[in-house]
Design a protein around this nucleic acid. Structure first.
Lengths: 124, 124
DNA sequence: TAAATATATGAATATATGTTCATATATTAT
DNA sequence: ATAATATATGAACATATATTCATATATTTA
């Protein structure tokens, strides 16, 4: 990773005093660096329309891979790759059932995030 | 955009009947294609650690660009580029105040999404 | 008006990521 | 055991994107 150059010097902006105090408060109260990375990673899982579709489908019912592919008009391979990412993000879980692997949501968080997001999108 | 090949034929999976019905229900009740794209786009705005940091900062206080850069150890240019994306996503707003442009959250949705995400990340 | 400060932006670059293709692995049926 | 079916995965490719660098624009100050 390259070394990030910071801005050369603090600006003389409209609210220097207020911002200095706010910046200090930031450093004290902010979630630590790692937690913010995890948070960004969580949202990355939702940040692709293929995965959104998969998550939406799984929020209505569990599915095996090929039925997901069929319902979402995606190739089996593409679905499988995305399922792997979603599982790594702990958003979904799976179990084997004969030849099939059945995928489902890991918990209720996905539905909550989903509906909150939809709320925002629909407000406009 | 390339033509997506779908899986060649429906599988004979463990729960064909249940999944056929679920797939049909999906097509009837799913948010339309465009809405799902918008939803993915919304989460894309949260899906980068630089933007997450910016949003976190703005959830505690309004800031001008250079104070943001200073507080987050980013270059002024990088911050400005990201602020543009966040504004396009309607997550933040801005006003001019003298030489400075002051940025702040557009509404309470960001905080809600944020805290819901943190909840998930912290549960593990 | 000229200089200084704050912000925005286009081009270039490096990196990340989504899909495809080919193929490997695992389970079931014959 | 062999064939068929379901899923997973590595490599290659195309695209998206985050940052940097140089510079443009806008406001304030001298």
């Amino acid at each position: 990773m390259p070394i990030k150059k910071t801005s050369s010097k603090p600006c003389v902006c409209a609210k220097p005093q207020a911002h200095r105090q706010a910046a200090l408060a930031l450093k004290k109260n902010a979630p630590d660096e790692e937690e913010l990375y995890d948070l960004a990673d969580l949202f990355k899982a939702f940040a692709d329309s293929s995965r959104i579709k998969i998550l939406w489908a799984l929020s209505t019912s569990e599915f095996c891979v090929c039925d997901l592919a069929d319902a979402l008009k995606m190739t089996q391979s593409a679905v499988s790759h995305q399922l792997r990412l979603l599982k790594q993000s702990r958003l979904i879980k799976s179990r084997r059932e004969g030849q099939s692997i059945i995928y489902s949501l890991a918990d209720e968080h996905v539905k909550k995030v989903f509906s909150l997001g939809l709320e925002h999108v629909r407000e406009k």
